[in-house]
């Protein structure tokens, strides 16, 4: 018996399409890489600074700008809590309205519109607009984070509500319950546990975001960090980053505990 040839079947069966795609990918990569303009002189100079920065993690300086760091962190935290609470409170009606199985069509369209608007733009872009409206300071930050929270929570809430077991809602409706009673007894128990988990998760995200929107003047630790980088005070920058990481890790641990207790 003569040996039969065998080779693994390719991912894309059509050879022309396969080669065409590979060629296009290669051409794009080439074009993309060649579009990077690098000033190697500047990079070489910067590497020393990079090394200095990495080294500064070994001896972060919490002390000399502790006043600024402390103020920034407290501001970030207060922005985070306020924005998360306000955002969730506003997200609940929007989420209810964006659930196809509960809301009438015009309300549905309106709420979906709000969600899409909130999710499309980066927090920092929204922050620019709010700073222009409210002036510099944490209020613009709170508005930004709350706005982003609405889109995030409302979208997931709406999806959860659309996925609930209709039989349970029907059973509650069959008892003669009013619409709010249906919400409380038929819908809420089904979506609550995940909502609490998501809220804690969003709290976490809001804190991380609060650390950057300060760059455009919306309050929080970001402004302090930006200043530290501008002045090449790497020891202080390292200290701030370590504080951020510690808080994020702490809140992540907390949210995992909360989510586990709920299940």
């Amino acid at each position: 018996m003569s040996a039969r040839a065998w080779s693994p079947p390719p991912l894309i069966a059509n050879p022309w399409l396969r080669r065409g795609l590979a060629l296009a990918a290669a051409a794009y990569l080439l074009a993309a890489v060649s579009s990077i303009e690098v000033n190697w002189e500047r990079v070489r100079e910067g590497l020393d600074r990079g090394a200095a920065f990495v080294a500064s993690f070994a001896r972060p300086d919490f002390v000399s700008r502790w006043g600024d760091i402390h103020e920034g962190i407290v501001e970030s935290l207060s922005m985070t809590f306020a924005a998360t609470a306000i955002g969730i409170a506003l997200a609940l009606p929007v989420g209810l309205g964006a659930a196809r199985n509960l809301a009438p069509a015009p309300v549905y369209a309106l709420c979906r519109g709000v969600i899409a608007l909130s999710r499309t733009f980066q927090e920092i872009i929204v922050a620019i607009l709010f700073v222009a409206m409210f002036g510099f300071g944490p209020l613009a930050g709170v508005a930004t984070l709350a706005f982003a929270t609405i889109g995030f929570i409302a979208k997931l809430l709406a999806e959860d509500i659309e996925d609930i077991d209709p039989a349970q809602v029907e059973a509650i409706r069959a008892t003669g319950a009013t619409w709010p009673q249906i919400l409380v007894y038929g819908v809420a128990p089904q979506v609550m546990p995940r909502m609490v988990g998501l809220s804690v998760y969003r709290l976490d995200i809001n804190f991380r975001e609060s650390a950057v929107i300060g760059i455009v003047g919306a309050g929080g630790i970001g402004a302090t960090l930006n200043t530290a980088f501008d002045r090449y005070e790497f020891d202080t920058a390292a200290a701030i980053i370590l504080v951020i990481i510690a808080i994020v890790m702490g809140s992540e641990y907390l949210s995992s505990v909360v989510r586990r207790r709920l299940q």
């Binding site: 018996m1 040996a3 039969r4 040839a5 065998w6 080779s7 693994p8 079947p9």
Partner: peptide, 26 residues
């Protein structure tokens, strides 16, 4: 790289035939 020796490939085809799965290779 899926570069199996020709003997192995031949043996695999023969075995597939034997267990009644000739033609199922791909």
């Amino acid at each position: 790289l899926r570069r199996y020796p020709a003997d192995d490939i031949a043996a695999a085809f023969a075995l597939l035939e034997r267990v009644g799965l000739g033609g199922f290779a791909d």
